[in-house]
Design a protein around this nucleic acid. Structure first.
Lengths: 219, 219
DNA sequence: GGCAAAACAATACGCCCGTATGGTTTTGAC
DNA sequence: GTCAAAACCATACGGGCGTATTGTTTTGCC
């Protein structure tokens, strides 16, 4: 087995990280963060290598050394973004599903990082090569998020679980759409209202399952 | 008052349309349709003037004559897309809200035209000038769609109406998000399942209002 | 028919993109 | 210390982009 960092680059065996590898990884991270900033600010089509290197404060050659092509840069940036931990919401031990979802929205979705990811995802729609490179990481990320929320509804049988996955997918779609909608006459307050209204519909559906099963379990 | 076509271009007074104006409008439409096709197939960043003229079968000069800059082309294409009539769903006189929404999804949202529109909307996020040119038409379009669905829930007081607008916004966001999600392990069947599950939550909320008010009205 | 304007076409131009190349500095094993 | 590899840098280059320019055809009004 080969150890790798968040960007999928090799890391020396036995955990010992050489100074060179540290430097490399820090450089890659700096560049990816600059890429994220550019994607969020300028959008995919206006995010050029020149802009990224300017923002990152590195030379064009340095970027090229770590990311031979633009596609490499974008794929790695996507991995970098998808590797963000989901554990923000875990900090406070609120059991309330609504609060969890709201925290998820505010800490994970309604961020420039997620905007950047969205830019890449949408660009990947018409770029099959990029899409193929992203697909795995995305799938894994979604599964992780699902796995993070599913336990809140207790143990479920297969049918209930699939229904919850449907609802989680709907939730993901709605949040993404809301992020896009953001700009046109929908201020933060209105955005929040829509989200709350959605949770009004979603939370009962989630909690119904949880209770249904809990009542069956508890003596 | 000045008469205009769907792209906002002037049309002679008194309804008389000269041969030249007809030709112009047909050319503009051809070009916009080619733009739509390119946006849907290649995405915003890969939709170049050269590709559009190749697809439209016109010369570069012709395009430039009708749309002096690329921004003009994109803004006009957005107007062209936003001007699509919402009346598809009206063809069959089904009162069922679910069926209406499903038809709306299939005929209006899950189309290459809407994909193209989405590409422009997302590009406009980071292009304030383009955004400003689109904003009005988009707002109007949304209002038209809302006005198309609201009557299905009967006459409502202000509070109920605002709540329905929230739900319509949520519906719009979810459908857009679903369109994006499309590519990653979500096939048409799964897409349909998510949509149906969403309607399960949405329809009762809509119909509740309708019934509440109807029972109050009917003698 | 004459003529100005609109519609369309061909080509030229400058810019910036992404990549290639060659050179310099830093690092780490020996 | 030596030396190869990695990291980083400066610059060059071809290509496609969007736009400008100029020329040709079509149209509509007198």
């Amino acid at each position: 087995m080969v150890l790798t960092d968040a960007l999928g680059y090799p890391r020396s065996m036995s955990g010992a990280v050489s100074r060179q590898e540290q430097k490399s990884e820090r450089a890659r991270q700096t560049i990816c963060e600059a890429t994220v900033a550019c994607l969020a600010e300028y959008g995919y089509s206006e995010t050029s290598i020149s802009r990224v290197v300017a923002r990152a404060g590195v030379s064009k050659g340095a970027l090229q050394h770590h990311f031979p092509s633009k596609e490499d840069l974008m794929a790695s940036t996507a991995s970098y973004l998808l590797a963000r931990p989901v554990e923000h919401a875990d900090r406070d031990r609120t059991v309330n599903i609504r609060d969890r979802l709201l925290t998820f929205w505010e800490k994970m979705t309604n961020t420039s990082a997620y905007l950047a990811l969205l830019e890449i995802l949408i660009a990947a729609r018409t770029d099959r090569v990029l899409q193929a490179r992203i697909a795995d990481g995305l799938k894994t990320s979604i599964q992780e998020i699902d796995a993070h929320f599913l336990p809140l509804c207790g143990d479920l049988n297969a049918g209930d679980q699939d229904d919850l996955l449907l609802l989680m997918t709907a939730n993901r779609c709605l949040m993404r759409g809301l992020l896009i909608e953001n700009q046109y006459g929908i201020d933060r307050e209105r955005q929040r209202q829509v989200l709350e209204r959605w949770f009004d519909l979603l939370a009962p559906a989630l909690e119904a399952k949880a209770q249904h099963h809990q009542t069956g379990e508890k003596p």
